[in-house]
Simulated assay, not measured.
Amino acid sequence: MPELSARNILIAMLLLAGFAGAGAGLVALVQEGTEARIAENRMQVNRNRIAELTGDLAYANDPVHDTTDLSHELLGGNHLPAWFARDRDDAVMGIVFSAVAPDGYSGNIHLLVGVDRNGELLGVRVSSHRETPGLGDAIEAERSSWIHAFDGRSLGDPPPDQWAVRRDGGVFDQFTGATITPRAVVRAVRRTLEYFDEHRDDLLSATPEDEASLVEPVPTPDTDEEQP
């Protein structure tokens, strides 16, 4: 076998480096394009769900572009977007909150929670989750009607001690073989209503120009519970 010269070794190394660089660049380009499409698709889904949740309100603005970030333990996280539906005088008619249920069976459950100015639920939708297919995914409006049980509810309907699944003495159904998932959603919706109730004046007086966020430290939750 002929010996490789230093010049040939250098050329081979440069070729390999070139191929590696080109491959990495191609992967980065594809990833960037894919992430942009995923983000746009997610935003389009949110637009549709926001329109669903505010559909009964005679608002005059575009809630998708009337948004701010909120951070609070009751909402389950930091920098969560909220969207405002307003009348022609810019008075807030309803708000769609982003909320996180940190105690789902397979991790965080991300919700959109619509609340009118009186504290009544316009509805709830799941924006993302990793719950078990065929069990926990019944929280999706496309899978079952369970999520519609929140429509029209408020902190006083049902009473606070009945804001739970039936297994825990509440009024909301659980799923056969999957209690943790609906329990997590019920808790998150109740906490969102509590947040609205505590911050009602600030939220209803917010103008489209407001940039301030209501920020409080959000501790890391304990999610060691097992699905019964």
Rank of each mutant, 00 (worst) to 15 (best):
S128E: 11
G23P: 09
N61Q: 03
L75A: 03
D151L: 10
Q162W: 09
A141V: 12
H148V: 09
A91P: 04
D62F: 05
G21H: 09
F84W: 06
M93N: 01
P81E: 01
A164C: 11
G23E: 13
L14T: 15
L193K: 05
T223C: 12
A82E: 03
M93K: 05
A99D: 03
W83I: 00
S213E: 07
E32K: 14
G76N: 08
A101P: 10
V100F: 06
T34C: 11
I95T: 03
Y105Q: 05
A12C: 12
P63N: 00
D202G: 05
S127T: 15
L16Q: 10
V64I: 15
A99Y: 03
S127K: 07
I11Q: 10
A17T: 14
D202M: 09
L111V: 11
D168R: 05
S213K: 02
S71H: 05
G123R: 02
I147K: 01
N78L: 11
L57S: 04
A17L: 15
S205C: 07
R191D: 12
V215N: 10
L135G: 03
L214N: 07
A141S: 13
R153Q: 15
I139V: 13
M43S: 14
L4A: 07
L203A: 00
F84A: 00
L135R: 02
M93A: 03
W163C: 01
D56M: 11
L57R: 06
D201H: 08
L70K: 02
E226A: 12
V215R: 14
T179C: 05
D202R: 14
A188I: 12
D197N: 14
A22H: 11
D202Y: 08
W163P: 02
F172Q: 00
F97I: 08
V186T: 06
G25Q: 09
D210I: 07
R125N: 09
A85G: 03
T192R: 02
L15K: 09
I109R: 00
L74V: 10
G104K: 04
V92D: 00
H148W: 13
M93I: 09
T207P: 04
I11L: 14
E73G: 08
E40H: 12
A141N: 10
A17E: 06
S144Y: 10
A22T: 14
F175H: 02
D116M: 03
D151V: 11
D66M: 01
G55P: 07
A39V: 13
D87I: 04
A24G: 11
T220S: 13
A164W: 07
L26C: 11
T68K: 00
R153M: 13
S205A: 12
L57C: 04
D201G: 02
I147F: 04
I50L: 01
E120R: 11
I139R: 01
F196N: 01
H72D: 12
Q31D: 15
N46H: 10
H110I: 08
H72P: 08
E226F: 14
Y59G: 00
R86P: 01
P217A: 08
D103N: 13
P228W: 08
